[in-house]
Design a protein around this nucleic acid. Sequence first.
DNA 1: CATTAACGTGAACCGTGGTTCATGATGAAT
DNA 2: ATTCATCATGAACCACGGTTCACGTTAATG
Lengths: 195, 195
Amino acid sequence: MAQTRAPRADAVRNRKKILDAAREQITLHGPDAGMDEIAAAAGVAVGTLYRHFPTKTDLVAAVIAEYTTHVAEAAEAARERLATGSRAVDEISDFLARVTEATATNHAVKAAARALGADPVDRDAEARAGAALAALIQAGQADGDIHQDVTVDDIYLLFTTAPTDQPPAARARWLSLVLTGLTTHTRTGGGEAGS
Amino acid sequence: MAQTRAPRADAVRNRKKILDAAREQITLHGPDAGMDEIAAAAGVAVGTLYRHFPTKTDLVAAVIAEYTTHVAEAAEAARERLATGSRAVDEISDFLARVTEATATNHAVKAAARALGADPVDRDAEARAGAALAALIQAGQADGDIHQDVTVDDIYLLFTTAPTDQPPAARARWLSLVLTGLTTHTRTGGGEAGS
DNA sequence: CATTAACGTGAACCGTGGTTCATGATGAAT
DNA sequence: ATTCATCATGAACCACGGTTCACGTTAATG
């Protein structure tokens, strides 16, 4: 049994360049981003691109995987920050803000995924994010800041519908509206006890 | 100044059949719905389709126009119902529910519009809907049911992000969460949390 | 340095889907 | 009934974009 050779240096480099370019181009031009354009943006020929990702669907799936992992890490970081004494609501709010931002740049990617019939799910990362979120919500409910009936699915439901193609001001407003629905607080920047 | 002849009977009939088929097919298969499929569904040849709508973009635009008009009419109907003594919050809630439903069947249409670069805006209908909504919100605020800072743009912001491809239960839950953010009320038995 | 397998290249291929156009059919007007 | 403009037909056309492949390059191994 031949032991596999060490991967070539430039191959690794190119793979990264391609992923970066793909993320950027798809974010920019939506699902319409052509393989040629992506290849050009990566400074690589089309063939190279197909060597690393046999099909466009595979490429898009890879980009999504990056994104999902990113979300999972954000959730876990938020949970760990609870140990430092921060309030769960604030962490959730912060998490939603970050993810909304990230999703804004990745909305097009999901659209592309749909258009290609790719499975935009990374079971593992999803599970990690879910666990962290559940902990955050529970903490928030214990604090009395978050409605008792709020679940992890609610969070998913909300930020999968985040307004990604709106200007930042609109996104901020959206977050404010949505948070009011999750928490026991009234609106206004700070956090006054509600009625 | 040639006075235009009376339009042929079958032409009018076909135009309607085409619009119906287009709405149905695009709703069903998304932006991928081909002109051939639409034509087939309408029981018409492709050429006929192109006689009525010079381009696919035009066809999609026409379907969207129908939808926008529909929304405007729903808003105006809701406002008029205020005269019968119904509460503004309830009407807004009802309006959002209806529109969310309708949007669910027309999400694909908007996606198609984006993909084609069509302007999905009907200034007139938009204005009518805006006026009606403003009246509804104001009434709701006068009742003390709706937060003082809520605007028409908020409503737009929310239901342009409505979860259209989720199952009905999820849509209901979403509506419940969002309404809590708009109103001064606590959540009632409106929507149950997911499994 | 020589060897070789992995890698990179880009012109060409091909299916798909929007669009056209020459031809035939049909409803309205005389 | 006859005329004619409007309308319908659908095979063919063409551009676009994902994908392939025969060939040149390059990094790893001895």
